[in-house]
């Protein structure tokens, strides 16, 4: 399975995403391919990651410039054809700016950058990146953003359509105000599009794929393992391969 990773000028988690899919999940049949933002064709890929960072410095609204990069037309075609697309952090912001996901990410309630661990409960409709994760399970990842406060004009409708995929929760899985790191509406950490194939989230699953690292375990693997299982068209055992 080939996962493309787009590199925009100012992307700085592109290497993290590539490392996760290519080196960490490589032995399980995944490989990564970097895609330059000035390209107009994604090439032969099975899924796409729009990585985190500060595309174009985020001097305008976060993700607003990248959403107009040459590659984005190909990303839209890929998404409309049902291709799995995962936007992480700045990638989530870019997908919102590009109109591939609903809502927007605004300045954290604290007005400062927050780098810390969070827990997210997985819910909503099945997506290529979550379908092998049992609904209601909560996973541990870290966030690192200034503009991660999710807003949407009609959260209830988004919920009715089962498009809320991740919500910040406590270590016990409770969705509480205390567990909400940035003031996101409804503790929303990630959403999907109406077809379910495009997913965006603020936490960094690609930073939580190795127990060695201090970023808190391997829960992030479940997203990539899901996409692998989805690609192979069969359910997966999540949380370890035997």
């Amino acid at each position: 399975m080939i996962i493309g990773v787009i590199r925009f000028p100012g992307s700085n988690c592109d290497d993290d995403a590539f490392h996760a899919v290519h080196r960490v999940l490589g032995p399980h049949g995944m490989s990564g391919r970097m895609i330059w933002h000035k390209d107009v064709d994604l090439g032969n890929i099975d899924a796409l990651i729009v990585p985190g960072g500060f595309s174009y410095g985020d001097y305008l609204r976060c993700g607003a410039m990248a959403a107009h990069s040459p590659i984005m037309a190909a990303v839209k075609r890929f998404a409309e054809a049902g291709g799995p697309v995962l936007g992480i952090c700045n990638g989530f912001q870019i997908l919102c700016e590009a109109g591939l996901l609903e809502g927007a990410l605004i300045r954290n309630q604290s007005l400062s950058f927050i780098c810390e661990d969070v827990n997210c409960v997985v819910e909503g409709r099945p997506t290529p990146f979550t379908w092998a994760i049992p609904a209601g399970r909560h996973i541990h990842m870290s966030i690192a953003h200034s503009e991660g406060r999710y807003v949407h004009p009609d959260v209830a409708s988004l919920e009715q359509r089962s498009q809320v995929i991740f919500r910040y929760c406590s270590a016990d899985g409770e969705v509480t105000d205390r567990a909400n790191p940035n003031g996101s509406m409804g503790n929303i950490a990630g959403v999907c599009n109406s077809a379910g194939n495009v997913v965006g989230l603020m936490p960094h699953p690609e930073r939580a794929v190795e127990n060695l690292l201090g970023a808190g375990g391997e829960d992030g693997r479940t997203l990539f393992e899901s996409s692998l299982a989805y690609h192979r068209g069969r359910p997966a055992r999540v949380g370890g391969w035997q």
Binding site: F113, R207, G214, A215
Partner: peptide, 14 residues
């Protein structure tokens, strides 16, 4: 908390 201490998948001890 205001510094990204995890970027570039290398941080073993934060």
């Amino acid at each position: 908390r205001q510094y990204d201490h995890n970027v570039r998948h290398g941080t073993v001890i934060r």
